Simulated assay, not measured.
Amino acid sequence: MIIVKSNSMICIITVLCLASLGFNYFYGDLDIEKMFFGKSMPTAQMSSPQIPEVEHHKQSVILKDLPELKLVNKSIRLDKEYEPIDLVPVKGVYLREMAASALVKMLYAAESEGINDLVAYSGYRSYATQSAVYYNKIASLRPKYGELAEVEAAKLVAPPGASEHQTGLAADLTLKAFLDYEYVLNYDFADTIQGHWLKKNAWKYGFILRYAEDKEGKTNISYEPWHFRYVGLEHAKTIYERNICLEEYIDQSTTE
């Protein structure tokens, strides 16, 4: 029988006991608390730490609200006060900065490939200017079509507020040689090497052929091989590869 009178000895014996028991305190079935204190002590429930799950929500972007995809047509019109705040002069016309920069790159690329003589004939047009163009067209068609002149004019020229030119994102391109023609913008452009190059390569610079011949039923505008609209690189690539127009692109993206 060993009688221990010193508190320090009690501590030493306690430490030795724990050492001899080793890791059984943590991993074994021994109830150490009951050995020393006569009862089991409540223990906290231990469990593996829970790592919160991070949900990656794909943000739904409403394409029609993107500035470069601003949709303007006979059904969706701009008011007469609308004017982009970032218009800049480029190649003799005015365009929004993003479209102007892309146009410079595209025309430079064309020249570097031997595609010369392309010129920008029309860019931004105000509501008032578009109104003048539209009603002049009606007047020129009146002798031939009479009361149907306005209907026929709307196939060729967008009514005021319905023109993409008011967005500052559209450019009419032609040849220097055509500047002396009665109709500077004409269908002969489609058969030129410049017209072919633009139709094939414009998307690489963020532009699309806006009014394609096989999309007249969707755009309600007659074929215009000279009219190119800036929509941005990503969107232009998709529109070109799918062979769709801007109306179809926005409609499809909304339903996907």
Results as ranks from 00 to 15, higher is better:
46 M>H: 10
23 F>W: 11
19 A>Y: 09
36 F>C: 11
69 L>V: 08
83 E>G: 05
96 R>F: 04
38 G>N: 03
62 I>C: 06
46 M>W: 07
43 T>M: 04
58 K>Q: 08
40 S>R: 08
56 H>N: 12
27 Y>C: 11
87 L>P: 00
85 I>P: 04
67 P>H: 11
63 L>G: 08
45 Q>H: 02
56 H>M: 06
96 R>T: 07
80 K>V: 04
33 E>F: 04
75 S>H: 05
69 L>G: 08
41 M>P: 00
36 F>S: 03
53 E>L: 11
42 P>D: 06
48 S>F: 04
43 T>H: 00
78 L>N: 05
81 E>C: 06
47 S>C: 11
78 L>A: 06
58 K>I: 07
81 E>G: 02
74 K>T: 05
97 E>S: 10
40 S>G: 11
75 S>F: 07
73 N>E: 11
72 V>W: 01
54 V>I: 10
94 Y>K: 15
23 F>S: 15
35 M>Q: 09
70 K>L: 07
36 F>H: 11
41 M>D: 08
63 L>P: 11
53 E>N: 06
59 Q>W: 05
64 K>L: 12
81 E>N: 04
34 K>Q: 15
89 P>E: 15
62 I>T: 11
51 I>Y: 01
80 K>R: 05
33 E>D: 13
45 Q>I: 11
83 E>N: 04
91 K>S: 06
68 E>N: 07
29 D>M: 12
97 E>H: 08
95 L>M: 01
49 P>A: 10
65 D>S: 07
46 M>C: 15
36 F>R: 09
43 T>N: 02
69 L>Y: 05
86 D>T: 14
79 D>Q: 00
92 G>Q: 02
69 L>A: 06
71 L>S: 03
47 S>R: 05
28 G>P: 01
49 P>G: 09
39 K>V: 01
68 E>V: 07
58 K>N: 00
72 V>Q: 03
20 S>H: 03
38 G>D: 01
68 E>R: 00
85 I>Q: 14
70 K>A: 05
95 L>I: 00
72 V>E: 01
23 F>K: 15
20 S>T: 07
65 D>M: 09
29 D>C: 13
63 L>E: 12
58 K>R: 07
45 Q>T: 12
46 M>L: 15
27 Y>A: 15
58 K>P: 03
24 N>Y: 13
81 E>H: 12
92 G>C: 01
34 K>N: 09
39 K>G: 01
43 T>A: 09
57 H>A: 10
69 L>S: 06
78 L>C: 06
21 L>E: 12
23 F>T: 14
45 Q>K: 14
30 L>S: 08
23 F>I: 15
35 M>V: 13
30 L>E: 02
64 K>W: 05
62 I>K: 05
59 Q>I: 09
23 F>Q: 14
51 I>S: 10
60 S>Y: 04
47 S>M: 09
95 L>V: 05
60 S>L: 03
49 P>T: 04
51 I>P: 08
43 T>Y: 07
58 K>W: 01
75 S>Q: 07
33 E>L: 10
88 V>S: 02
38 G>H: 03
87 L>G: 03
80 K>G: 02
51 I>N: 02
48 S>T: 09
68 E>S: 02
67 P>K: 15
65 D>Q: 03
19 A>D: 12
79 D>Y: 03
31 D>Q: 13
33 E>I: 11
